[in-house]
């Protein structure tokens, strides 16, 4: 008989015991370990995914910030460039303006200098000319010249126009002080009498006269009465000449 029933029963028991033992010592711990590992791997994968998504988020954020920063930098740079350009333009303009001003000033100064020089030159020339003229006339002045001057004065007196004549007459009549006759030299008695006579004739009135010598007239004679003046003198000519020369100089400048 190939089947031994005691052995069969014993083997069934043995097998059931083996099932229990292996369940207890093999399957359960191994499956637990696998489960734990799988759970851990799943967790780690989830963590990794979370980290990845975080990293992606951060990356996006970083990129966005970077772009923003780049944009800002660009804007700032362009603004700075623009400002620098503007500043440069302003400085250039200012410098140009300053240069222009300086140039104008210098030109003005040079023109002024030239004008001053010119004027000075004119003045000096004028003074010299007049000085020479004065000196020459003064040197030439003597009795006969004085006589001629008196005659010239007399002539002017007589040739006065109506208006001047009336004005002078009025002035002589209303004057509180005696009329003043100034001459470059002391008039002789005869000359004084002639002038007195001529005045009396001309204005048909008795006129009191005070004579006075005034060397700065250079050579000449003048009548001053209450603001009115009748004169013939070289100084007058010279003065008119001087004013004419000055006018000329002014026009030239």
């Amino acid at each position: 008989m190939l089947i031994d029933w005691f052995t069969v029963v014993a083997q069934v028991v043995n097998f059931l015991i083996l099932v229990w033992l292996l369940k207890r010592f093999l399957y359960k711990p191994i499956l637990d370990a696998i489960d734990a590992r799988e759970k851990r791997i799943a967790k780690e994968l989830a963590d990794a995914a979370a980290k990845m998504s975080d990293a992606e988020k951060m990356h996006d954020e970083f990129q966005r910030k970077n772009a923003e920063f780049e944009q800002q930098r660009e804007a700032l740079l362009s603004k700075a460039t623009e400002e620098a350009q503007t500043e440069r333009q302003r400085l250039l303009d200012e410098a140009r303006q300053t240069a222009d001003t300086l140039l104008t000033k210098r030109q003005q100064a040079m023109r002024n200098d030239a004008q001053n020089l010119h004027q000075e030159l004119g003045r000096v020339t004028q003074r010299e000319v007049f000085a020479i003229a004065r000196k020459a006339l003064a040197d030439l002045t003597d009795a006969s010249l004085e006589q001629r001057m008196v005659e010239a004065f007399m002539h002017r007196l007589r040739e006065m126009d109506e208006q001047s004549n009336a004005d002078m007459a009025h002035a002589l009549q209303t004057a509180t002080e005696p009329a003043l006759v100034r001459s470059a030299f002391d008039l002789t008695e005869l000359q004084r009498a002639v002038i007195q006579k001529a005045l009396s004739e001309t204005f048909s009135a008795d006129i009191s006269i005070r004579f006075e010598a005034a060397p700065n007239l250079i050579s000449g004679i003048e009548l001053i009465a209450n603001g009115q003046k009748l004169a013939w003198s070289v100084a007058d000519y010279l003065a008119s000449l001087e004013s004419a020369v000055n006018d000329l100089l002014k026009v030239k400048n």
Binding site: L18, L21, L22, F25, L26, P29, I30, D32, A33, A36, R37, R40, I41
Partner: peptide
């Protein structure tokens, strides 16, 4: 043998990788 081997191996099971 089976049980002893199982016990020996599963006595210090690693839950990690």
């Amino acid at each position: 043998v089976l049980v002893a081997g199982s016990i020996l191996v599963t006595r210090k099971l690693s839950m990690g990788l």
